[in-house]
Amino acid sequence: MIRRFEDKCNIAYRQGLVGGYMHVYIGMEATAVGWNAALKPGWDYVITAYRDHAQPLIMGSDPVKVMAEIMGRSGGYSFGKGGSMHIYDIENCFFGGWGIVGGHTPLGAGLAFAAKYRKEDRVTICYLGDGASNAGVFFESLNMAALWDLPVIFIIENNEFAMGTRLEYHAADTQLYKRGEPFGIKSERLDGMDVLQVKADAERIVNWVRENQKPYLVEVMNYRFAGHGAADNDRQLYRTKEEEDENTKRDPIARLEKYLTENNLMTAEKMEAINVEIEERVEAIYEEAVNSPHPEPHEVYAHVYSDMEPEKGH
């Protein structure tokens, strides 16, 4: 579903229906799917950066409202004022959707802070990329998360590239899970491509954090099949075609299909039927989203403040 949804977003981008920056999750799906399976729906908090289409889809958000937002339509979660990088579904505990690399990591700690302050047993997952793992504010967040025993799991999704710069050119220590160690935070490097393994690891760690009320840091090894963003048309500047082909063999979806087939858990016909159903569903989502109207000009003033309008006019 995520794969087809993101494929469709790419098509919409090429059709000119999506503007600005858009970052798809293709290749990394097993990470969000596996981790989310360990969370209590509607209770635990999730926050991520700008590669944010997948999480809300998994967390029960309305996919039409997600795609409408990506297209900047009034039927989107933020009425077209957020866009691809800023998807939020607060009711379902998805807190976005942020465009400043590393900038959302203290917010993730803040969500966990709120749970601790209220003595609730919510766990927060804060995703960030390997690029964001160098940000000063991330280290500040790690320190305070450990200092105050905040129940937050920082997941560094190491897809090997900070935009167009390969890991070894941006990180002095490429073992990113070690970022937590100076703060006494339990830290691990884990696979992010085998969804069943991801889920098992996630359940173990989420339960530990809920029980022990302490932070955790995980480096998840996955791979971004797509470019950094939809506007990234020069992938060969930072990686070879051969490398991409090699990594495609790690495809989490093909891997799961193979597992299901080999263990006689699902027939080829059933799998095909599911694929067809998903494609039809995504088509229907696309149709509904693309038919959502553009916002009216006067809506530009709404939601600047919760209780007043800003000054109007140029």
Partner: peptide, 14 residues
């Protein structure tokens, strides 16, 4: 930056 961000995250929950 860190503690302001933590306050913002906490404020988002009310």
């Amino acid at each position: 930056p860190g503690f302001t961000g933590i306050a913002i995250g906490a404020a988002m929950t009310g």
